[in-house]
Design a protein around this nucleic acid. Sequence first.
DNA 1: CTATTAAATGCGACTAAGTTGCAATTGAAT
DNA 2: ATTCAATTGCAACTTAGTCGCATTTAATAG
Lengths: 125, 125
Amino acid sequence: MYEHNTKIKKLIKDKNIKLTTARVAILEILEKAKKPLSYEDIKVDISMDKATFYRNIAKFEKEDMINSFESNDKKRYFELKKEPHAHFICMECNSIQCIKNIDITLPNYEIYNVTINGKCPDCQI
Amino acid sequence: MYEHNTKIKKLIKDKNIKLTTARVAILEILEKAKKPLSYEDIKVDISMDKATFYRNIAKFEKEDMINSFESNDKKRYFELKKEPHAHFICMECNSIQCIKNIDITLPNYEIYNVTINGKCPDCQI
DNA sequence: CTATTAAATGCGACTAAGTTGCAATTGAAT
DNA sequence: ATTCAATTGCAACTTAGTCGCATTTAATAG
């Protein structure tokens, strides 16, 4: 059905959730990608029902394993949670870029996610 | 049909778009609100077809009169464009707050919009 | 190793924000 | 007042994401 990978398996086992092929597959793709992916994106690589995908994503978010945000194209994008960073979304070409050299703090607020919308260097006239 | 207001009328006339009652009504409500509103929000005050609302919003955005962003509840929120500022969206209570004392610049990027997701002070345990 | 059972999967039907086509209406300009 | 393009409102549509339910799978106990 899907490929396997011991590192990813450990990641799942460490949380107390069931180790399933679908979960391994999702996390493996997210790790390989090294950029946020949507359901449409993962579907290119593996055929998985969207209900399964989104239900697992919900579980991963609850277990604090992934981040997500909505892009310009109305789709949610997901990535493995590593060092916190912001995302830039270009409103011209819809590309998504991870922005690491920015950090935002607001006293008394807990910040999960920062999204910056605008025009990327490539899309300036 | 809707209320009128000379200040808003001027705002429309200054762009080269038609002055219609729907447009006056939308801008007037956005101005009164002083916070971003969704279609659902404006519909509480005036009965306007959603196609009319969204088509006018699209025109306002094209004319650079308003800002918009998507909140946690999957709805788009709109506000009159004034001083640039970020928005904080609480993922617990879905409230939206304007954050003025933050400014983000990225060399070679044009930034339209910054959204911060997290937990607001009221929602910390 | 097999039986048990709670959790996970996949399918199809559904939801809801936003979009589109089109006929009727309105507002700016002559 | 007349004209004509732009705008409005309705209904039908689109589409990402959700939900119910019957079937399958993974973890555990025996």
